[in-house]
Design a protein around this nucleic acid. Structure first.
Length: 455
DNA sequence: AGCACA
């Protein structure tokens, strides 16, 4: 025995192991090269590259101890040393009996992302905002949020690894778009790794956690009592129940606000399903329908009080509508159903909305709102699932455009307050418009720089 | 050229 145990790490004779320790490997030696090296002697069942401070060591594990012995024995008596890329490598038995591959969990791709929200106001980030951000890449099944030493974190569950990966690649290191956050909030960036989870357990819908696959999941009592930011539309207890349909009234309407303009503005937060415009008291109002309440909530919070055009023109006031599904009977310049691919509609007739706009239509209502057409026709509220790709992961505003959006250059949504950057010359021209009373503009009077013509 | 690190 003598000196065998005196300096364990520098013994020249190791007890045999099916794991071999390799040194002096070339830079960035690959697993394939190690397998090639060991293959003549047996079955290589595992390897580990880039070991040690210089990352030039490695391990090879054989299926059988005799195979490792064969390799050591061969090179012990061979005139040709073991080589990788012409470089001599030194072999010996490892002092361990098996390779433990410590792949960090963050390196193993999965369908659940671990998101760390960084920033002084990180914990103020609403779960609905997170949902919206990640929905751009596919249907978000569940979100849970929690506080850890790392800060404010969230687990975001997608249906598959591919979707999660695309979200991670696009969002890791980026900031949440400013217009999705309250104005006075400092920026929040996202750090994203893969979680080892595959299916999150969400017991309640709450301000901390959501299960979007199960809209009927009970609402956490704490969330109801808090009555603050939370509402999934399951309980009618709130004073102004959240809705997937927004009622927007437009004040100080110096310029024409068309259906297209509204669509551009509101589509920044998710696909707009339907829009219906109508007049009330000489002003313009519109109902904007999203597929889900969460999107509407974010849109309302972002847009409320902001003006479509610089200078406080066409200022938006937004509330939740009592509608859940607008009945659009015809696509024209005042109403549009974007869920119907073709503008051809059966039995065309003037736009009929539900009760809410009907009540608002006074004597000044345009003639196309025909009396006999007002019969309420409430459709069955449809429980829409999340759109497959929020902002259009496969559409024109896909993840590849996220950097733009993150820089507040979202093509559809300049930050509120500086929205459609109208040319000043045009604004002067518009001063001639006889629109002090906020009367709706005819189509020919719309500003030339409509949002949908800008990038 | 000398044993991995969550």
């Amino acid at each position: 025995m003598a000196s065998v145990s005196s300096q364990p790490q520098f013994r020249y004779t190791q007890p045999p192991s099916k794991v071999l320790h390799l040194r002096n490997l070339p830079w960035e030696c690959t697993e394939e090269e190690l397998i090639e090296l060991g293959k003549p002697f047996g079955k290589v069942v595992n390897t580990k590259c880039n070991v040690g401070a210089n990352r030039n060591q490695a391990f090879i594990e054989f299926a059988d101890l005799n195979q490792a012995i064969a390799m050591i024995s061969y090179y012990a008596s061979s005139s040709e040393p073991a080589q990788v890329r012409g470089k001599t490598v030194y072999l010996q038995y490892s002092n361990r009996q098996e390779i433990v591959n410590n792949k960090t969990t963050a390196d193993v791709a999965g369908n659940v992302l671990l998101v760390t929200i960084e920033g002084t106001d990180a914990r103020l980030v609403n779960i609905d905002v997170l949902h919206l951000v990640f929905s751009a890449f596919g249907f978000v099944h569940k979100i849970t949020t929690f506080e850890k030493t790392a800060g404010f974190q969230a687990l975001v569950q997608f249906s598959d690894i591919e979707t999660a990966s695309s979200a991670k690649n696009a969002l890791d290191g980026r900031s949440i778009p400013r217009y999705l956050l309250p104005e006075n909030m400092s920026p929040c960036s996202l750090r994203i790794t893969y979680s080892a989870h595959t299916d999150l357990s969400v017991k309640f819908q709450s301000h901390r956690s959501r299960d979007y696959t199960n809209p009927y999941l009970p609402v956490a009592p704490s969330a109801i009592d808090a009555s603050g930011q939370f509402g999934v539309g399951l309980d009618g207890k709130k004073l102004e129940p959240e809705s997937n349909v927004l009622l927007a009234s437009i004040e100080n309407m110096q310029y024409a606000v068309t259906l297209d303009v509204l669509n551009q503005v509101f589509s920044a937060f998710g696909p707009v399903q339907k829009i219906a415009m109508f007049d009330k008291n000489g002003g313009l109002q519109a109902l904007i329908q999203y597929s889900d309440v969460q999107t509407a909530v974010v849109a309302k919070e972002a847009l409320e009080g902001h003006s479509i055009y610089d200078g406080g023109f066409c200022k938006l006031h937004i509330s939740y509508s009592r509608h859940t599904d607008l009945s659009i009977k015809i696509n024209n310049d005042r109403s549009r159903d974007y869920t119907i691919p073709s503008p051809v509609m059966v039995n065309p007739q003037p736009s009929i909305l539900g009760q809410q706009p009907m009540q608002m239509m006074g004597a000044a209502a345009p003639h196309q709102y025909n009396g006999g057409q007002y019969a309420p026709n409430p459709e069955q509220p449809v429980m829409h699932h999340q759109p497959p790709a929020g902002w259009g992961a496969s559409g024109p505003v896909g993840p590849q455009h996220m950097p733009h959006m993150m820089n507040n250059h979202h093509p559809y949504m300049p930050p509120p307050g500086s929205m459609p950057q109208m040319g000043h010359g045009m604004m002067q021209h518009q001063q001639h418009m006889p629109s002090q009373g906020g009367a709706p503009q005819h189509p020919g009077s719309m500003p030339p720089n409509r949002p949908d013509q800008m990038q």
